[in-house]
Amino acid sequence: MSSDAHATHAADGHHALADAPHGTLKGYLTGFGLAVVLTVIPFWLVMGNVLDNAVATGILIMVFAIVQIVVHMIYFLHLDAHSEGGWNMLALIFTVVLVVIGIVGSLWVMYHLDLNMMPGMMTGHPG
């Protein structure tokens, strides 16, 4: 079984190509369509001043961004739990954890540092 698979892999000389996911035309077009919709809506929200509430608009923009990143990962980068024996997904999860800790942690710590600063302790920041 496994020796057969190896034989065909060796024979065609394109084994990296045969193994790696490269998607289909339908997949690319689906991803592109979704990406266009997920890009146009946040731009429309901002340029058309659709919502009066800036906080709600901001949250919506971030939601659309995160959804679009997932769409790109699935349809353009062809990521699933099985690519490269699952190691791609493992590396991605590890990276996402680091990214979230880094960004959320920075914003959180620096925000509280600002709040706890006495006015006048920061030079060049009139307060």
């Binding site: 084994h15 193994d19 099985h82 024996g85």
Partner: peptide, 14 residues
């Protein structure tokens, strides 16, 4: 599942 035939793509992903 294991032992991808070409490790280049995994390396590039990392």
């Amino acid at each position: 599942e294991e032992h991808p035939h070409s490790s280049t793509l995994l390396g590039f992903w990392i």
